[in-house]
């Protein structure tokens, strides 16, 4: 039955995608394209593009999209529940363990050592978005035409607004989108 299949496929995607969206993509492709043939390769590429253009995790987007295509809204619901369920179980267990044992001295020291690494990982995620936005080739280089000044100015202005005026982050993000659109229309 299609609902059971959708549920089980996305349950696997949810349970084995360690490390966020980019880890989920090959898993989704292996199941949905290669094994079941629910989507063609072109459909899958479209799905990845939609995911990049819209908010939300790619795994949730994929579950909703594939579910909708195959079995309408009920299919989308079943697939989305499947993909989120492993998270709910694993993360709840980890959160319970954390709450219970976080004051143990050894665990405290371990977490103290972990925090700086987490800060670095967040920075890396930011750079992965920023670098291709500012450098057209995706590589840091000031060769002819590679450096895009407008995204850079938007970035610096946003950092300034966030730090100096404590501006609302979502307002800053949306303003950047609107400014870029106006600039494209005028120039």
């Amino acid at each position: 039955m299609i609902y059971v299949q959708l549920f089980l496929v996305f349950l696997q995607v949810g349970a084995f995608s360690f490390g966020g969206g980019y880890a989920a993509m090959p898993l989704i492709c292996a199941q949905v394209v290669d094994q079941y043939g629910w989507l063609s390769e072109k459909d899958f590429a479209d799905l990845v593009t939609i995911s990049q253009m819209t908010p939300g995790p790619i795994a949730i987007n994929a579950a909703t999209f594939v579910g909708n295509q195959l079995a309408g809204i009920p299919g989308a619901l079943v697939a989305t529940i499947g993909v989120a369920l492993p998270s709910c179980i694993f993360v709840t267990l980890l959160a319970m363990l954390y709450t219970k044992y976080k004051d143990l001295p050894v665990l405290k020291d371990a977490l103290t050592a972990l925090r700086p690494a987490v800060v670095s990982m967040i920075l890396v995620a930011g750079l992965i978005i920023l670098i291709p936005a500012i450098f057209r080739s995706g590589e840091v280089s000031f060769a002819d035409g590679n450096f895009a000044i407008r995204p850079f100015v938007l970035f610096v202005g946003s950092v300034f607004a966030l730090r100096k005026w404590k501006a609302d982050p979502i307002l800053v993000m949306v303003s950047c989108g609107v400014i870029e659109l106006i600039a494209q229309l005028i120039l």
Binding site: V172, E180, L181, A183
Partner: peptide, 14 residues
């Protein structure tokens, strides 16, 4: 266009 501009804002937040 909107999506392209938002990338600058998103990375600034991070």
């Amino acid at each position: 266009g909107i999506l392209a501009g938002m990338k600058s804002g998103v990375s600034a937040v991070i």
